[in-house]
């Protein structure tokens, strides 16, 4: 009932879909993300923070090594293509938000990540494993506001 009301109001776009709980695949995928972060530290001496890498692709290209950072991002972009070539099907991708909501969300994600010096990868993975108090605060805050936002859009609007 709530779901249909929600769709009627257009708050969360089309109905949300159920996803299967995948503890093993998710732990394994997480370990790969961690391995990538360790490799970036070992080779380039840098934190694998996607927002930090992405913002330096904008002029005036702070920090140099634009080619290397672009290569990292292109690696991210290529990943589902590789999966498609190996398995024959594209990985699940269900975008619930409509165009206007996507633009607003994108602006907020980009602004917030740079304003707070990091996102889920830089603070949530790299920072927490370095026991950084700033990353602990950042992760706690973005988890809290994200959970509150989903509660608001899915259950109260």
């Amino acid at each position: 009932m709530r779901r249909s009301l929600c769709a009627l109001a257009g708050a969360a776009g089309p109905d949300s879909v159920n996803t299967e709980f995948t503890p093993f695949a998710s732990f394994l995928g997480g370990a790969l993300i961690g391995a990538a972060a360790v490799m970036l530290m070992a080779t380039m001496g840098r934190i694998a923070g996607v927002s930090g890498i992405a913002v330096r692709l904008l002029p005036p290209y702070a920090g140099g090594d634009v080619a290397g950072r672009l290569a990292f991002i292109l690696g991210l972009v290529a990943a589902p293509v590789v999966v498609m070539m190996v398995t024959g099907s594209a990985p699940d991708l269900h975008i619930e938000a409509g165009p206007a909501l996507l633009v607003v969300a994108g602006l907020l994600v980009g602004f917030g990540a740079v304003w707070g010096n990091g996102c889920t990868s830089g603070h949530g993975v790299c920072g927490l494993s370095r026991l950084s108090p700033r990353s602990l605060v950042a992760t706690g805050v973005f988890m809290a506001t994200a959970i509150a936002t989903v509660y608001l859009t899915r259950h109260l609007m």
Partner: peptide, 30 residues
């Protein structure tokens, strides 16, 4: 900044379900 930035980031993350890494992996098929 370490409170306000992530607070804004979290609202955007909750609205669409995308954070920066998955936004880039979605480019090819999304």
């Amino acid at each position: 900044r370490i409170v306000i930035g992530p607070a804004i980031f979290g609202v955007g993350w909750g609205l669409a379900g995308f954070c920066p890494g998955p936004a880039f992996t979605a480019l090819a098929t999304g």
